[in-house]
């Protein structure tokens, strides 16, 4: 096996060649930081419309926008700052697995509590 072949073989076996490539440049990092700042300003802007989105006439729009902005910021940070978009896919799977498990488990918990809410409220009142 020649040196070149050994190198290619190592790259093929390890999948290391897809790591550390195409990371954003400093200028791109500034742009991403600016984008995150603008998204945060938009989020905070909703507070100046109302501090109680649930009671506002535009409740679905306001709450939907806030949740959408939150998800966009989350994805931008983990993709570009944490390099999940560029790094080995195994890292993505590890993190997303934890995330999906967390969201799934706690949605189930929240749904359960919502379903048995009346009994829970009655129990709380008894305690108080």
């Amino acid at each position: 096996m020649s040196t070149a072949t050994a190198t290619e073989s190592a790259a093929g076996q390890t999948g290391h060649d897809d790591e550390h490539h195409d990371h954003p440049s400093d200028a791109q990092y500034w742009k991403i930081g600016g984008l995150l700042a603008v998204l945060t300003l938009l989020e905070v802007g909703t507070y100046f419309i109302t501090d109680d989105p649930y009671s506002h006439d535009l409740a679905p729009l306001l709450i939907g926008s806030l949740l959408a902005l939150m998800v966009i910021k989350f994805i931008v940070i983990i993709s570009f700052f944490m390099h999940l978009k560029f790094d080995n896919k195994i890292f993505r799977w590890v993190f997303v697995s934890g995330l999906v498990l967390a969201v799934g488990v706690y949605l189930a918990v929240l749904s359960t509590f919502a379903y048995f809410d009346q009994g829970y409220e009655a129990g709380l009142q008894l305690l108080q």
């Binding site: 290391h16 195994i90 590890v94 995330l99 967390a102």
Partner: peptide, 27 residues
């Protein structure tokens, strides 16, 4: 043999599990 840094994988595993901690606290 995967070519992935053990230290980096360890941190990602920790972060994945930390999602569960914060998921519990948020819910």
């Amino acid at each position: 043999s995967t070519g992935i840094s053990n230290n980096k994988m360890g941190m990602w595993l920790f972060l994945g599990s930390d999602c569960l901690l914060f998921g519990a606290l948020i819910s």
